[in-house]
């Protein structure tokens, strides 16, 4: 049997997904037995023209991580879609926009101002901002266009599967790879995890009915390790996040931040998380409710940490 042709690509991401891919440990040897890696910019020297030269659908599987922030990433997404039989959104950024997706709270102008003009460490007297085209004596230089809005891979091209996580747990990665190797692929569109239920189902903490009088940030309290973190006032996203990760964060006494995305059927992860959290506020007094809500400092960053571009509103309105 011919070996599988595997491509791996990164767009707007941190590189953590590449580390996570290696996290499968010695299973990588098993992967090497059955698959050849044809494109992997982080590890193998290959040029875009090499990919361009590949025939359509000649790549069996492409694991694409990172969100779509620039024209270059959009171009590569489209190209890899064309060349791949199966395109998988790998990790939270490709799936829901991820941390780069929080850039949708701003636009290009605001981001450039901050990054190239305002930060204390910036020395940019000429106030030069990135340009897509720039004339130099040697000719014209180009840079990819930086878009106003971050998009998910799924909003850019048609995707076949999702491997969620920031980064995906090794077991999740292997679950998908194993299915690929064995040719036992689930229906198109499936978010591949061990558990379709929310993280709470994975979480070993003791859960009771919920009533919250005060929300805390993680550094403000030392939670009881035996008890549900949300019950202790920590904004644990486990209730609103697809499981299968085995709840490593809550098990380390840190609240889940929602990286595996919503469970099936949830239209907007953040709005559902928000509604659930608000529902268990233990007060019927509007002033007290407001005081309790004041303890949630960054609702968008909390409820949509990995899914803002994939939410119904997708981005903030900039005046």
């Amino acid at each position: 049997m011919a070996k599988l042709k595997l491509a791996l690509y990164w767009a707007s991401s941190c590189g953590g997904c590449e580390i996570a891919q290696l996290q499968i440990g010695d299973k990588i040897l098993k992967l090497a037995e059955v698959a050849d890696i044809v494109f992997w910019p982080v590890a193998i020297d290959a040029k875009y023209k090499d990919v361009e030269a590949m025939p359509e659908k000649s790549i069996d599987v492409c694991l694409f991580n990172g969100a779509i922030r620039t024209s270059e990433q959009e171009h590569m997404a489209k190209m890899l879609r064309e060349k791949s039989k199966v395109l998988i959104a790998y990790g939270a950024c490709a799936y829901g926009g991820g941390i780069p997706g929080l850039g949708n709270m701003f636009n290009r102008e605001l981001i450039f101002e901050r990054a190239y003009l305002e930060t204390p460490s910036t020395d940019n007297k000429e106030k030069v901002l990135p340009q897509t085209k720039c004339k130099v004596p040697e000719g014209e230089l180009t840079l990819p266009e930086f878009y106003d809005t971050v998009k998910t891979l799924g909003q850019t091209v048609d995707i076949d599967y999702v491997i969620p996580g920031c980064p995906p747990e090794a077991r999740t990665t292997w679950l998908a790879l194993e299915a690929l190797i064995e040719g036992k692929l689930p229906p198109k569109g499936t978010v591949i995890t061990h558990n379709a239920k929310a993280v709470c189902d994975d979480c070993p903490k003791k859960r009771d009915v919920k009533k919250v009088k005060k929300f805390y940030r993680t550094f403000e309290i030392m939670p009881d390790p035996e008890i549900c973190l949300l019950e202790q006032g920590l904004l644990c996203a486990g209730i609103a996040t697809r499981g299968g990760c085995e709840a490593p964060c809550p098990q380390a006494n840190m609240p889940c931040t929602g990286c595996y995305g919503p469970v099936d059927g949830v239209i907007d992860q953040g709005a559902h998380f928000l509604s659930a959290v608000a529902s268990v506020i233990d007060s019927n007094d509007p002033d007290e409710i407001q005081r309790i809500i004041d303890g949630i400092y960054d609702p968008v960053g909390t409820f949509y940490r990995y899914s803002l571009p994939d939410s119904l509103l997708r981005r903030a309105k900039i005046k």
Partner: peptide, 11 residues
């Protein structure tokens, strides 16, 4: 109120 706080952030 929590939704409004979130929407305010969203402009």
């Amino acid at each position: 109120p929590l939704l409004k706080k979130m929407l305010a952030q969203m402009g």
